[in-house]
Amino acid sequence: MATTSPVMSLYQRTTRLPQGRRVFSLLFSLKAPYFASVRPRFVELRPDYAELVVRKRRGVQNHIGTVHVIAICNGLEAAMGALAEVSVPPHKRWIPKGMEVSYTAKATSDITCVAETDRAQWTGDDPDVPVRVRGVRDDGTVVVEGVIRLWVTEKPAR
């Protein structure tokens, strides 16, 4: 990517600091306040890849004591949003248009939320960009997997 996005610049600047990933996670959640409900902790962010953790805590648990799947989906959408911001070419814009997920196992631990794309998806002519997402327990078991579909178009001329 020719130009570094504002989100990537912020990530690069903050992760140089002590507790930098925590600082970035907080600032990211301030920009999109709904994400703060799951308190995402970014682990890694680069074009075509984002990884964060949603800790298992009372505020995100369901009636059986596991991490609620909607909290996991919130974490997956946060990962997707960060990935999209650092991956989309500067002359394009994106908006989510749908999420398809399968619940594959109980979320009995902290959940690592991963979003991934391939570089060619952003540079092609197809405006439909599927972002692969998954939520993974501490033991490596995938608890949620699916796709968040983005609509990626040219920015309007100013």
Rank of each mutant, 00 (worst) to 15 (best):
P40T: 05
R58A: 08
T14A: 15
G124N: 07
D128Q: 14
G98H: 03
V88C: 14
A107C: 01
V23F: 13
T15Y: 01
T108E: 09
V86D: 08
V38M: 05
L150Q: 11
V38L: 11
I95T: 13
R134C: 08
M80F: 11
K56G: 04
R149C: 04
V69E: 05
Q121D: 12
R39T: 09
V67H: 04
R16A: 15
F35C: 09
P18L: 14
S102F: 02
A71V: 09
V38I: 15
K92I: 09
V23I: 15
I95E: 06
A32G: 00
F28Q: 00
R46K: 12
S25V: 05
R16I: 07
V53L: 09
Q121W: 12
I111N: 06
T123N: 12
A105I: 03
W94S: 10
G81I: 00
T66Y: 01
N74E: 01
E77A: 13
R119N: 11
L76P: 05
E44S: 12
D126H: 07
L10Y: 05
V133D: 06
P89W: 03
V23N: 07
F42Q: 04
E116M: 12
E100S: 11
G140H: 02
M8C: 08
R119P: 15
A82I: 04
L10K: 11
P96G: 14
V86T: 13
V136R: 03
V101D: 05
A157I: 10
A84Y: 02
G124L: 08
M80K: 11
R55G: 12
K56P: 02
M8I: 08
